[in-house]
Design a protein around this nucleic acid. Structure first.
Lengths: 174, 174
DNA sequence: GCCTATGTAAAACGATCGGTATCCTTAAGG
DNA sequence: CCTTAAGGATACCGATCGTTTTACATAGGC
């Protein structure tokens, strides 16, 4: 990726192997296409809430999993979180793409909060927000430094926060 | 601010009350102007290292001060850290503006590391990197959510990290 | 008074981009 | 075979942007 503003419709139609005309029959405008793209990303990237009928890992693993990034083995520079990037590339808070990014970030924290709450953490909102902030820090710093190593730094902090919150509950909660 | 890409030279010359021609006699290009702007920001925003001949606050205060943001009382939306924004708006890792932002971010962490080292922290590099990551998280998340409240969340995490690192040293170190 | 230098205002240029229209090929259905 | 609908390639349009150039104003040195 190279940023939204630097990506033209011409280029998109080329790599999609679709004419620009067909592109504009499927999407009303570039803004609409960006929104659809972000919506699809949303479903792919949001942390999955624990489902009752699944081999669920421990809450600790669930909360820390967001810091284990599986990178595509490309030569492209590391670009962090697409939603953070959108909120920078589209500064207008009233723009739909910016609002969509904000909604994603809120939902992201909410899911972490839900996992924490189900695990019996005392202040799940606080832990969820803290972990989300750590994630965003790792993503943003990774973008600036062109490195994904920031994830392990964030994870180490997250481990101490999660462990502290979970030991307050007691290792064997009802 | 509204982002680098969205700010034209026309607008700059207008608010600077200077003709576009004079602008181009002082700066070789828009890239050059952006570089100069970032350089000036660098000197203003980097955490100040403790100087021997100053009424120095405690190391704890110094390390946590970066999370106390003094906001101009404008109606403009909160835009986080300009250097993080640049690294997103100029995705090319080879571009001078991108590299300047990366250099700032490294220097930022290095200064925190220096303060931690002078305070006798066991692993100052780790603490400096952790605090820098927290700062970037607060800035990035603040940009996405259009709020500066993320600073207090980051500061609370930072307090626990700093306090843990300083109590390992012992409250009364030699 | 005149020359030069410097700056302003504004036009103009080339490039790029989002978006639309035009022309052509292709393939299915009768 | 003919019609028709859909899509591909591409030219085009208007706008914007970075940059340069042109024309004009102003002020100091001789």
């Amino acid at each position: 990726m190279q940023g939204i503003n630097a990506t033209g419709m011409e280029q998109l139609s080329t790599v999609a192997e679709v004419s620009k005309r067909t592109l504009y029959t499927h999407f009303p405008s570039k803004d609409g296409l960006v929104e659809a793209y972000l919506q699809s990303l949303k479903d792919d990237l949001l942390p999955v809430l624990p489902s009752p009928a699944q081999p669920t890992p421990s809450p600790r693993e669930q909360l820390l999993a967001v810091f284990d990034w599986k990178l595509p083995e490309t030569t492209a520079p590391f670009r962090g979180c697409p939603f953070l990037n959108v909120s920078v590339e589209v500064p207008d808070p009233g723009h739909s793409a910016h609002q969509l990014a904000a909604a994603y970030k809120r939902e992201f924290a909410r899911r972490l909060t839900d996992i924490a709450r189900q695990a019996g953490v005392a202040d799940p909102e606080n832990l969820g927000e803290q972990l989300a902030l750590l994630f965003d820090g790792a993503a943003a710093r990774g973008t600036a430094l062109n490195s994904s190593d920031t994830g392990v730094c964030a994870r180490s902090i997250a481990e101490s926060l999660v462990d502290a919150a979970l030991t307050d509950v007691g290792p064997a909660s009802p």
